[in-house]
Design a binder for these strands. Structure first.
Lengths: 211, 211
DNA sequence: TTCTTCGTGATACGACCGTACCATGATGGT
DNA sequence: ACCATCATGGTACGGTCGTATCACGAAGAA
């Protein structure tokens, strides 16, 4: 047998190139030849590892979520060992905000895929919509945990607040992308709501008092 | 001179066809020939009234916001003469939610244009981003007015809450589009926050008490 | 009536894109 | 040493898309 190359590694390399060019010129504008040039390989190679453009598109969204998951993991690790629920939630939300080049690419492409899936049923059937639900469940769990620890307002609806935080983060992220909103403004709004949900110790005691 | 046709009316007719096909197949998939077929005219006609596809695209987003403004106006009129600030805000937010076919098209296309403007600087230079700021200012004013009337929590930050409500509406609208969230769930979240901001009369009096 | 100009149609052109086809090293098992 | 097979490159084909070109009917102005 001949050279035996690690196919999965090559696919990753090409998918990375795909994400780079898509992040630069937009998902709609990316072509097979662009990906090949960006990856430094021939057009034939891209065809060889992804027979069709549709398969490259599908592999791309999977690779994108993998890399985003890794990004969140890194941020969480940087938050120190066993950070509180609030620090954990903040890390997740801030990692989703396009405040750096990587975050910008993530947000742009994830939004593009979402919008595209509305009119492309083959893409909609692809299981990449698991992520929003996963994030929603994770935040809900963290909020409930905070409530049990007396860190968060016990009267709050954990799931509703989780949905709200994620929804605000997403739209404000787009606002940052189009230059309508500054990252500081977005972070300020998020902090405002976190301050509202995560009561300070004294406030918690006071609220648990007379009622 | 020959037949003298109302150009603006023809442009509106073609732009409507453009919006219909774009809402059905996605903004990225719409071609000049599709628009012509949908409008029941020849390809040449579309070229005649919009020399280039880019101009059709730009005219389309303007026409879209015009129609959306009219939609909001209709909803407000249906809310009765001089509704309270809360009813007004609710009408604006619910009009933005894709709960019917028209709303679905509006949300899909407006999101598509926004994402497209990130990587298309010619589109980004087009003044269609005025709308988000206008809505934000309108909601901020309504909230301040409600605070002055004692209808809303005087301790709330009107602009922050306006930004939050609009941001949540937008993301949850996309959630509805992709089938991830139900309209009822989205409306429920919005009501939750409106209930939080718009305190009842008794609560308002209580809060203005001891402090 | 005639003529100029607007409105409309049919069709052609050039570019690009995804895909298919053909060719050829390279390599490791037998 | 040989050859089956994997990896890779070059190139061609069919289709579509935006745009340009040519042509003609219609109608008001002279």
């Amino acid at each position: 047998m001949p050279k035996r190359v690690d196919h999965e590694e090559r696919r990753t390399q090409i998918a990375d190139a795909f994400i780079r060019v898509a992040g630069r010129r937009g998902l709609h504008a990316v072509g097979m030849r662009d990906v090949a040039a960006e990856a430094g390989v021939s057009l034939r190679l891209v065809q060889y590892y992804f027979e069709t453009k549709e398969k490259l598109l599908f592999y791309g969204v999977q690779h994108l979520t993998d890399r985003f998951t890794a990004r969140v993991g890194t941020r969480l690790a940087a938050a120190g060992t066993d950070p509180g629920p609030r620090a954990t939630i903040e890390a997740i939300l801030l990692a989703s905000l396009p405040t750096d080049e990587e975050g910008r690419t993530f947000h742009l492409l994830y939004s593009s895929y979402s919008i595209l899936s509305v009119t492309d049923e083959a893409l909609a059937a692809q299981p990449f919509l698991d992520n929003p639900d996963a994030a929603e469940n994770a935040l809900t769990g963290l909020l409930e945990q905070a409530q049990a620890s007396g860190l968060a307002d016990p009267g709050a609806d954990a799931r509703t607040e989780a949905i709200s935080l994620l929804a605000m983060t997403a739209t404000m992220g787009t606002g940052i992308l189009v230059g309508q909103r500054s990252p500081e403004s977005a972070i300020g709004v998020l902090h405002h709501h976190l301050d509202r949900i995560f009561v300070t110790a004294e406030t918690a005691v006071a609220e648990e008092g007379p009622i």
